[in-house]
């Protein structure tokens, strides 16, 4: 028996919108720890890892570990029927081949339930160890989204370089080149507007902009984004989900020529 009640239902809607462009089908794993997902895109270049900790739910019951295979476009279709202020409850019985999404309006005058068929998904799970990164950049998520969008109108790849001077995003294409430098800036009115660079050593890596743009679909989930870079590792683009967990995107770099 599984029953997860989330008063801030819009959060689940945003999570789905954040990942459904990257991944088509995925297994949602439920355990005592929380509601999680790990899935790769079809070309196995990018990976999304989601964690919503059990403490973040108003009610969390998970009698035994459960993995539920879902088509994310179908989940999104269901969740789009929930109002932005609705309370969402996810329910499943042991051994059932369906999951139920229940939507309650804030004043309880409308209750809807949507039952969705589950599917068997044979997905590969990768073991991602904790790592020390050469550089970690924290910046406003809207700024990062803007940079990725702007650069993708010029080129297909972005070179992210971190030095003492700041973080530089560069691209080149048929029509020309572009460089955007963001300097460390801690003197802002609100902490979420700061750009903070923690650098152990300079690093420069090249990534496909198509994936970076896809990651920025998570922007509504968090005011800030953290980009962790090391020369021999995939980049980690993390959006913290307030008091609940995170959504992390991993992207393998392009091979330098």
């Amino acid at each position: 028996m599984l029953e997860l009640r989330l008063v801030q239902g819009s959060l689940l809607k945003k999570v789905l919108e954040a990942i459904r462009e990257l991944v088509t089908d995925a297994n949602f794993d439920c355990s005592a720890t929380g509601f999680s997902l790990q899935a790769m895109d079809s070309s196995h270049v990018a990976l999304v890892a989601l964690l919503l900790r059990s403490e973040g739910f108003e009610h969390y019951r998970c009698d035994r570990n459960l993995s539920m295979g879902m088509n994310l476009n179908n989940v999104s279709k269901m969740l789009r029927c929930a109002g932005n202020n609705d309370i969402i409850t996810v329910k499943a019985d042991d051994g059932s081949d369906t999951v139920t999404f229940m939507f309650e309006s804030p004043n309880q005058d409308k209750i809807a339930d949507f039952e969705m068929k589950l599917m068997d998904i044979d997905s590969e799970h990768l073991g991602i160890p904790d790592a020390e990164y050469q550089a970690i950049v924290r910046m406003p998520s809207s700024e990062f989204a803007r940079i990725c969008k702007d650069l993708s109108s010029i080129g297909d790849t972005v070179i992210i370089s971190v030095t003492k001077e700041g973080v530089k995003f560069s691209t080149a294409g048929d029509i020309g080149t572009a460089n955007i430098v963001c300097r460390q800036n801690k003197t802002v009115d609100k902490p979420e507007e700061a750009t903070i660079i923690e650098m152990q050593e300079p690093v420069s890596l090249t990534f496909a902009l198509r994936y970076m743009n896809s990651f920025t679909k998570a922007t509504p989930l968090s005011e800030t984004v953290t980009i962790s870079l090391s020369s021999d590792l995939p980049v980690v683009v993390e959006y913290k989900i307030a008091e609940m967990g995170y959504i992390r995107f991993y992207l393998a770099p392009k091979i330098e020529e």
Binding site: H44, L126, A252, K254
Partner: peptide, 14 residues
């Protein structure tokens, strides 16, 4: 075009 690496060359399958 620069070649793209796969995630499996960094992380093991578990």
């Amino acid at each position: 075009k620069q070649p793209q690496q796969a995630l499996s060359s960094f992380y093991p399958s578990v």
